[in-house]
Amino acid sequence: MAIIETKDLTYTYPGATTPSIQDVSVTINKGDFVILTGPSGCGKTTLCRTFNGLVPHFYNGTLEGEITVSGLKVADHKIHELARHVGLVFQNPENQLFALSVEKDVAFGLENSAMPRDEMRKRVDWALQMAGISELSERPPHELSGGQQQRVAIASVLSMQPDIMVLDEPTSFLDPVGAEKIFKVINELNKKLGITIILVEHRLDLAAKYANKVIVMNEGTVALTGTPREIFTSEKARLIGVGIPKATKLYQHLKRQGVTLKTVPVTTEETANLLLEMLNHD
């Protein structure tokens, strides 16, 4: 069942001469884990902003085409209505946390929605626990590490129990270990709670294994959509410069040498298993 559906979506920022996204038609199903990737400036962030109405309601400009999110037409609903269904996590953790304690930040959206205190307390504790940061609840966010801050940001949209969570390069300020932790948290939300995930990411080595769908954008348009395996082995993706995982690169290299593995791997473990299997077989 489609939870996000766009049709010929074109958007131009106020004052800009060319559209930042053009004729974008994508369908994202409930429960999907989608990776959105593509070169810098291709319009990934802009597309994410259309999902909760920041585009066009916050940025103005001209939006053409259609977009429906959780059954709501984005053009007809305010950002705060859409915020109940779509949570956005941004790149810079520092600029999306504004309270003086972690739990207050996590409660922010609920306070705005006028939730009664008792219920709010439960929700906040639940969200903190899901993000694995219960022990940080009273700390000031600005004294935490980047990875912890980003988990606070995740908890603070999670507390609103959205259907969809959009994360725009949430790990670009983090080291690989911090990034891995974030991906694990996101994956749990997707697999355990069934939240639809849209993850904008360049570092596909770490994230690819969780996704069931990849969308590649280029110069404001959708260049490719498909399963990770389809995308990573396509010639077009390589030409656009998608950060194809090393495991898949190795697969292709071996194939050119005349060694074809049984399936296309996206992680190192998968590759290792496939190779072992092949060696034992011989």
Binding site: G87, A107, E111, R117
Partner: peptide
């Protein structure tokens, strides 16, 4: 960026805002 993050977390959804504390 802050304004964007606030909007995304339902800023202004209700006149009768509640408080955790």
């Amino acid at each position: 960026e802050l304004a964007e993050a606030m909007e995304s977390r339902a800023w202004g959804a209700s006149d009768k805002r509640t408080n955790l504390y």
